[in-house]
Design a protein around this nucleic acid. Sequence first.
DNA 1: AGGATCATGTAACCGGTTACATGATTAC
DNA 2: GTAATCATGTAACCGGTTACATGATCCT
Lengths: 194, 194
Amino acid sequence: MSLSYAMLGLLTYGPMNGYNLKKIFDKSISHVWAASLSQIYRELSTLEKKGYVTSIIQKQEDGPDKRIYSITDLGRDAFQDWLKNFPEQLSFYQRDEFMLRIFFGSRLEKKEIIKEFEHFISQKLDHLKKLNEIEKTFNIYSSEFTVESAEKEELFWHFTIKQGKMTIEVLIKWAEECIKQLEEYNSSKINLKK
Amino acid sequence: MSLSYAMLGLLTYGPMNGYNLKKIFDKSISHVWAASLSQIYRELSTLEKKGYVTSIIQKQEDGPDKRIYSITDLGRDAFQDWLKNFPEQLSFYQRDEFMLRIFFGSRLEKKEIIKEFEHFISQKLDHLKKLNEIEKTFNIYSSEFTVESAEKEELFWHFTIKQGKMTIEVLIKWAEECIKQLEEYNSSKINLKK
DNA sequence: AGGATCATGTAACCGGTTACATGATTAC
DNA sequence: GTAATCATGTAACCGGTTACATGATCCT
């Protein structure tokens, strides 16, 4: 599944321990594929069983020992295979709690629904800020990893950020239009509440 | 969780059997919260254990018997409670296989990535068609259910469809911009492939 | 004759979430 | 002193997916 390929993909930049992998995840890929620490540790051990990664213990005088994982040739091949083979049907997950609430929005009073839309907008604005923060660190990471073609790499990273920004912006626009329509609807009707 | 509230919400329109509930799901709410038949049957029995629904067997001369579920007052209260209490943090799920592929897009040749973007666009266009089909059936359903305030109900249903359409449209626009940028990038560089 | 639709479920699996457990070092 | 960070895991749970099982009727 996709988590393993996300991890293998990051490990192509260089060997890493689980804890560090999680940090890289959060700063690069989490807006596209999120992962928790426990998930990462579990997945690393299954990847090792499959022979896609190997690990060595690195002792440290200051702080606890690290288990450093490196991607193997087999892992590299598996990653490249996944990347080459575009799925006939992209798995997309239509499960959105907020939209479900809106579907049943007529059961709430107008004031309350508008408040929900406003909450929605503020959460989307928060999300936008997070995306901007991720974007700022991109240039740092591409230099840290000393990627061969950092420029090209960054182009694609920016594509994913752009996608996030554009969808958030359109969702905010949508919510604002909904609020406007609700207000118009109310003024044209004498009584909305049943 | 949300599935149970989606089901309770639909059962407020009237008693239904599992099979029929699934059909209503697909024609109304699936773009917002999808569910499979086995999930629905499982969830119906847990809702019954909780006392949120009751069931009776309806015998039929033609075809198999039906187990008709009705929402109880307890179920109605649970649904209304869920609707009233807006979650502090909306659970949203950032896991998108396509975007993960794009994140690692530099590892593919330009031609292949552009093909992926084009596949993406065609899948989004298919999705748009499905949304339009769902929208068409809305007026049929609101009359079938003899909803008290069908007009208001439909307003919110259209909000959810609008959201789907707007996000799909912006994603297509995004993909087209990405393709354009990739082509421009190539013409400004002598050699893209490493 | 064969596929779609109606109808109800069970079981196994898989992956994401949450809680638990431990313990050192560093920064305020 | 205490909160944050570094560091590695395990276990239980929860919900979504897939496969399996059964059988009638309806339409082509």
